[in-house]
Design a protein around this nucleic acid. Structure first.
Lengths: 194, 194
DNA sequence: TTCTTCATGTGACGTTGTCATGTGAATGAC
DNA sequence: GTCATTCACATGACAACGTCACATGAAGAA
């Protein structure tokens, strides 16, 4: 019924899910291998059968979250009835939503170690390609969609980082994160529209 | 010669300097209270005479770095010969430089805990006010300089985060961080110029 | 001098990531 | 069916860590 490899794959998934849940619930410090093992129904040493160390487990969490965003972008791309500009706005709003609902995971996705782990690199690359495709549909000129896409994704990350760290106060800046997003769309994406 | 309060103040400064140096050299994991104490010439328990816990020490490091940026902005503001648009560009370039030279400290400055510690809040607030003054000099309309300033600072943080995490690859996006900065200046700051 | 204050040193404790080793069940050969 | 092998997992152990309770000793006040 459950072969050995199936059981191992299920354990690996349980470990990643447990780590992701702990990260969302209590931040990076709450992710301990002992608690991850307990939630996955295994012992504290079990993760070492699937990952070289804790950082690789966290990289797997980051990769999974990038893939999750990729799924959302896929749904957007498949919706051919929606105007391209609408799709881009929805894509950016989706990034903002993820960043707000899972601030710790979002920070992990954009933190240094991600670029070192092959699985994470692949997931990031796929999702970024999808995002670029959406941008290109709006911009037209493929030579411009790269820089424009990079600026959009960078800025959204920055807006979320400022929001989540409490640095984007209304009293100081007289603006909300959503308003910044629309400034960005108006002045970066819209001005390059074909 | 050295009074008790003078000695205590010197120790506190040595602790913050040691923590900052360790953070720059080896990242967050390299900052251990034992090593901080050793570099400051005191024992591992000494920090508890100056900070409630390790996070408050790190918050002091973040506050010091925000103040350091404030000093750079002060020099820019004092230079009345330079055109306002030039000052803003120099201010943003300065942020990029800090983010590149001290990636770990830069990440700390924009990470969640910063907003909780009074000293860090004050330092951030002062520096943001200075940045806003520079933006207002370019924009003219004070009601618009808030949102514009917030978008500029957020975006610069995002660009640095993407750069430092290795996500801003030239092959994928066909653009550099510096080019993104100038896109930002042209389309956000320049278009609002009075 | 004597007392008080307070920064610092030190021993101890619980928790963490990690490794070496043991174990037991699924797998494949015959 | 029997046996040997493989491999995911459990367990004990260890060093390093943040933190606390307590001891110490010198500076400042009386």
């Amino acid at each position: 019924m459950v072969s050995r490899v199936e059981s191992a794959a299920a354990t690996r998934r349980a470990l990643v899910d447990a780590a992701a849940a702990l990260l969302d619930e209590g931040g990076p410090d709450a992710v301990t291998l002992r608690e991850v093992g307990a939630r996955a129904g295994v012992s504290r040493g079990a993760p070492y059968g699937h990952f070289p160390d804790k950082e690789h487990l966290l990289a797997a969490v980051a990769a999974e979250r990038w893939d999750a965003i990729g799924v959302r972008l896929d749904a957007l791309i498949a919706d051919r009835d929606r105007p391209p500009a609408d799709r881009l706005e929805q894509a950016l709003a989706g990034l903002m939503e993820v960043g707000r609902q899972s601030p710790h995971a979002y920070a992990l996705m954009f933190s240094t170690p991600v670029g070192v782990y092959p699985d994470a690199i692949a997931a990031v690359s796929r999702t970024h390609d999808q995002f670029l495709a959406i941008v290109t549909d709006v911009i037209g000129d493929p030579a411009r969609s790269g820089p424009v896409g990079a600026l959009l994704m960078s800025s959204v990350q920055g807006i979320i980082a400022m929001e989540n760290s409490g640095l984007l106060t209304a009293e100081k800046w007289h603006v909300t994160g959503d308003e910044l997003l629309h400034m960005l769309i108006d002045r970066i994406a819209a001005s390059d529209r074909r």
